[in-house]
Every structure is written in structure tokens, then in C-alpha cells.
Design a protein around this nucleic acid. Structure first.
Lengths: 249, 249
DNA sequence: TATATTTGCGTCTTAATGACACAATAAAAA
DNA sequence: TTTTTATTGTGTCATTAAGACGCAAATATA
């Protein structure tokens, strides 16, 4: 069986997923390393002719990383001619990542649809990468390794989109544990926005959105004064996802 | 020469453009009618293998409608399987819009990239549709004729995107004549948002953005009190396009 | 000359934002 | 045990933006 059954795939179309996590005040991105290959890549793949593109994004992510039930958002189609590179395909061939039969498939010109998602980070999380990949790792957005093709630009574009979305969408539900402190939520915002926010004003504003439920519990054991824990009001959160936070007009 | 030189085209990929205009308090959309075919369609087409997708959007719009120098924004990829329809292709074939040689091309499964743009409306504007099309017309968003495939959904999706963009982007520059009254600008907003705005609050808010230059001229000849004319401050406008209007955080 | 309608330009109240202060807490240092 | 230190909780005050209105000036039409 050939590596890729390209007869059943949608030609010239690929999907790439930018999976964001958050840990210790840093945005993390999930990247894959192919066997025998020095550059890293985003979890991506091709689209079955008989399946919806949006659905395939989920399937591909599952196949490449083992991640299930991830809500992916389509954010851009990358369609420049120069994003393709024969040299890159030849390198993949030389590294025996793609075989002779697949070469004609890979040498097509591809456009790729970018999807992004926010998922909970766990430092001990084990991913189950596909056979082609030697590892699947979280990397800090500030410290992305050398990526194939335009995958670095795809990451940057996803981050830019996320930054924009932050202004009219709630965020944090999938990024933080079920219960979290106000400082942790603020850190998510500050990290994505790449700028500091006033602690007291942040608290006031986020509480005014009425999406947070203050549990009376405190996180104990940490240094200094024990902070209260909050959790999201799921109904309000999803409502805000649909309607946006600040109407504008 | 065959109708479509499909050897040079990117397979399974099309582009559709939603061109918005504004006239007499109505949003207009540019639609095409194919010869011998009852349904209407968006100006769309295919992507040359050797060209950037974004550039091809502009080229396609020019080819299908004659419109030049239109700034198109990519907004979504429509990739559901069911958006394709063999029945539709057969109907095109029966209407002699596509010939036997092109049939294999059209019977592929297609995904389409949606672009939208805002352009000035002129009721007397003459479009120069391509050979396949019998006419190219403005139609009110509220009165879109029966469209092929999912083109109606593409229009709705573009409108939804536009509505969202209105909250953090300036708008009107390409939609109104160089000089316009405050009421005309307000009508643009009200029409896109599909809700009335308070005249006095609108004026205050829009002037606070400091993108408008009040000319001291008035529009004379109309009924009732003559309104002042405004024009956009191009520098401020383009700056606001880049940075957004309300930062949010 | 009166009427109808639009336009320009306000006010008043309430809500949101930005800048900042101080006491309470709890681990760590003295 | 006491003191220190960094963090957390909760405010205030001034400024700006938003929402709800009022009223006189202008101008074609009746």
C-alpha cells in the first residue's frame, strides 16, 4: 500500500493546524518533527474528496497528533505560488519520507487552509504522532524551531487572528484548567496580546462580562496570599462566543 | 480553443466574489446571469496554477465583470462536499454553457474561496460581462434572485463578515462618492447593520474617530435644509484600517 | 405664507475606562 | 518568633464614551 492514496484526495489542497496552548505565561504551539528531517512542521494533511474540508481538519489533527474533540476555526487560505518548493519536496524524498509513487502527488502546487484551536496544556501530555513523525511537541511561540515552507507565517497569521478575536470574543475556556485564578486568566490575555494590563482594571472588566463564577475556594500552598479560584459560566461563555462581547454599534 | 484551458488551472479550486454596493438605502450585490440559464451566479472563476490565489481573485473579477482596481478581501473557504452538484453541471452542459471537453473539469469536486469588496455604486454603470454571461447587474441584498449552488450562502456569509468588520474597521470610503452627507454615511451603517442608529449619537461617534473632514460646502437642490458635505481623511482612514477603531484591550 | 421634513447642534444621565492606593495574606527570611 | 516581601483583594477619583432626548434653523412644497 502506498504511503498516500492520492487517488482519493482533493488535489492541490492541504490543511494545516495551529494548536495553541498556554503554560507558565507563554503561548505554546504544537509542532511535529518528521523522521530523518531537520525542519519541523505543523500538523497538517490532505482532504478526502468525499469529506467536508472543515471535518477533515479535525480528522487530520487526530491522525497527526492523536488529539480528539478539538474545536478548530478556519482562519485563512494561503494561496501564494511561491509557498510551494520543489527543493523541499526533493528533501522529503531524499529523507525517505515520501516514496517514488507519492512524488507526483507532492510535486503539485498546493494551497493550504489554516485552522487554529486553543487546547489545555499539560506538560506531561503524551501525543501519539503518526508513523511519519518522530515527535510531537509543544514549543513556545517565541521559540519556534525552523519550520518547513511557510509554516512559520501560518503560525504568525494564526496568532494575529487570535489577537484580534480577543477583542470581541471570550477566551480561556479551553486554555485554562476548570478552575483558575484571576492572575492566570490575566496572564493568558497579556501573553496573547503581548502587553501588560492593569490588574485591577482587568479584574473589573472581565467580571463585568459576567462569564466568570467565583468559587469561594482558594488556591492554597502557593507562595504569598492565596488567590480565589474562578470558573467559567459555560452558558454565558457560549452565548458570548456567538454574540460577541462588545457590540460596537 | 476549448472554453477553459483546464490544463493550466489549479484543480478543484474556485473563487467567488461578493461585490457590495450601496444605493438608496439598500445594499446591492453584483450578480451575473449566464446565457440560456435561469439561475444567477456570483462573479467567480478558477485559479491559474502559476498565480497567487489572492491575485487571481482580482483577475477573475476583471474578467467576469470588467471591474478594475478592486480591493478584495478573502473571507472564507467553502469546502463542504454537498456544495457540489452533478445536476447543476449537467444543466450547464444542457444549456451549452460548458462543452463536452470541459465537462470532466466541471465535474470535479470544488472548494471555493470567498472574497468580498465594497465599490461605489452608480445606477448607470455599464459592466462588461464575459462571453458566457448575458448580463451583470446590481441586485438588492434583500432581493437576491435564485442563485446557483451555494452562492446565496456565500453572499450571506460575506454580509455577516462585513457586519462584524464594521465594529472595528472604518467603512464607507469605497462605498460612497468622494463627498457625502452625514445622513448618507449613517444610512450605509444602518443598512449593513440592519438596524436604526440615533442620528445625533452616530454623528458624535463617527466624528470622534477623526476620519472625516467637514467641507464647508452643502448639498444644495435637495428638499429641506441643505446638509453639509464631508469627505474621508485618507491618511487617517488607512491608518484606522490597519490599527482598527476600538482597541478593546 | 404656512407646512412638513430634514439638518445642525446641543444637554443630561449613565456606563466604561484609565490611573492609582492601601490593607490583608502567607511563605520565606531574619 | 518576628520581620520581610511579593502577591492578592478591593477599593477611589477623574476622564471619556455611550444612550436617550430637545429644539431651533433651513428649505422645497402645499
Amino acid at each position: 500500500m502506498p504511503l498516500i492514496t492520492y487517488q482519493t484526495l482533493h488535489p492541490g489542497l492541504s490543511i494545516d493546524c495551529v494548536i495553541f496552548g498556554f503554560y507558565q505565561k507563554e503561548i505554546k504551539v504544537l509542532v511535529l518533527k518528521l523522521k530523518n528531517f531537520e525542519k519541523w512542521s505543523l500538523p497538517g494533511g490532505f482532504v478526502d474528496q468525499t469529506k467536508d474540508v472543515d471535518d477533515e481538519a479535525t480528522n487530520i489533527l487526530k491522525r497527526r497528533t492523536g488529539l480528539k474533540n478539538v474545536f478548530l476555526r478556519q482562519f485563512h487560505l494561503f494561496g501564494d505560488v511561491k509557498r510551494n518548493s520543489d527543493a523541499h519536496i526533493n528533501a522529503l524524498f531524499n529523507s525517505k519520507i515520501i516514496d517514488n509513487d507519492s512524488l507526483i502527488w507532492f510535486k503539485q502546487r498546493f494551497v493550504t487552509v489554516g485552522y487554529y484551536a486553543l487546547i489545555p496544556f499539560s506538560p506531561s501530555q503524551i501525543f501519539t504522532p503518526d508513523n511519519l513523525s518522530e515527535s510531537c511537541e509543544w514549543r513556545s511561540l517565541k521559540d519556534i524551531p525552523e519550520m518547513i515552507l511557510d509554516h512559520k507565517e501560518i503560525i504568525d497569521s494564526a496568532h494575529k487572528t487570535l489577537k484580534k478575536e480577543l477583542n470581541y470574543q471570550p477566551i480561556g475556556l479551553n486554555l485554562l484548567p476548570e478552575q483558575f485564578t484571576m492572575s492566570e486568566l490575566q496572564a493568558v490575555y497579556e501573553t496573547i496580546l503581548e502587553k501588560p494590563l492593569d490588574r485591577r482594571n482587568f479584574r473589573r472588566k472581565i467580571l463585568n462580562f459576567a462569564m466568570l463564577i467565583p468559587t469561594k475556594k482558594q488556591r492554597v500552598g502557593g507562595a504569598y496570599r492565596s488567590p480565589y479560584l474562578y470558573q467559567f459560566d459555560l452558558d454565558k461563555y457560549h452565548l458570548a462566543l456567538q454574540n460577541g462581547l462588545s457590540s460596537g454599534w
